[in-house]
Amino acid sequence: MITLLFFAGVKETIGSETLTLKGKQQTIAQIKEYLLNTYPSLSLQGVMVAVNEEFALDEDIVKENDTVAFIPPVSGG
């Protein structure tokens, strides 16, 4: 199982802090594609992705028991 974590606007659009994916290993790009197809109003533009607390690229492989975090840009003052 792969655990997906969502923060801020991504969490609001999906309606949950976490989701789990069952199945084989896949790339970050494949997970993004699944999310965009499942949640058409979701925007991942500018969203950083981390796998097991380390920033990841679209071509990186996610394996069983990994945790993938979707971290949107934040602003503050």
Rank of each mutant, 00 (worst) to 15 (best):
E54Q: 15
A50S: 10
G15P: 14
I71M: 08
L44M: 05
Q45V: 15
T3L: 12
E33Y: 04
A29D: 04
G15V: 15
K63T: 15
A29C: 07
E17T: 05
S41T: 05
F55L: 13
Q30E: 12
P73N: 09
I31V: 07
K32A: 00
P73I: 08
F55W: 07
I2Y: 02
N52S: 02
L5V: 12
E17W: 04
M1L: 02
F6D: 04
I2P: 02
F55P: 08
E12S: 10
K24V: 05
S75Q: 15
F55I: 07
V51I: 12
L42A: 06
M1T: 07
F55R: 05
L44E: 08
I2A: 00
G76Q: 11
L42E: 00
V47C: 07
A50D: 03
S43M: 03
G76L: 12
Q26P: 03
E59W: 06
G77W: 01
D58N: 13
A8D: 03
L42K: 00
N37G: 06
M48T: 14
Y34R: 09
F70S: 04
L21P: 09
E59R: 14
V49H: 01
L5G: 10
V10G: 04
G23F: 11
K63D: 13
G76K: 09
Q26C: 10
L42Q: 02
T38R: 06
L57W: 10
N37K: 03
T18Q: 11
I61L: 06
A69G: 08
F55C: 03
Y39V: 02
A56K: 01
V10D: 00
T20M: 10
A56F: 00
I2L: 00
T18M: 06
N65M: 06
S75L: 12
S75V: 13
P72S: 14
K24I: 02
K32P: 01
L42P: 00
I14E: 11
D60P: 08
Q30S: 01
G15A: 15
N65A: 10
P40I: 01
S43A: 07
I71D: 08
S16N: 14
S75R: 11
V68P: 02
S43K: 14
L35W: 06
E53Y: 14
L57F: 09
K11W: 11
F7S: 07
L57M: 10
D66F: 10
A69T: 06
L36C: 00
A69Y: 11
V47R: 02
M48S: 07
T18C: 05
S41W: 00
T67K: 15
L21A: 09
T27W: 03
I61S: 04
I14V: 15
N52Y: 00
Q45R: 15
L4C: 07
G77C: 00
E12M: 14
Q45G: 15
Q26M: 08
A29V: 02
E33G: 11
L36K: 03
I28Y: 05
D58S: 13
G9E: 11
L21R: 03
G23E: 12
G76I: 12
E53C: 14
Q25V: 05
K11T: 06
M1D: 01
S75A: 11
I61Y: 02
I71H: 04
K24N: 11
L57D: 15
I28M: 11
S75D: 13
F7N: 10
F7T: 07
I14G: 13
T20N: 08
E12D: 15
L35D: 03
V68K: 03
Y34L: 12
K32W: 06
E54M: 15
K32F: 00
E64M: 10
A8W: 09
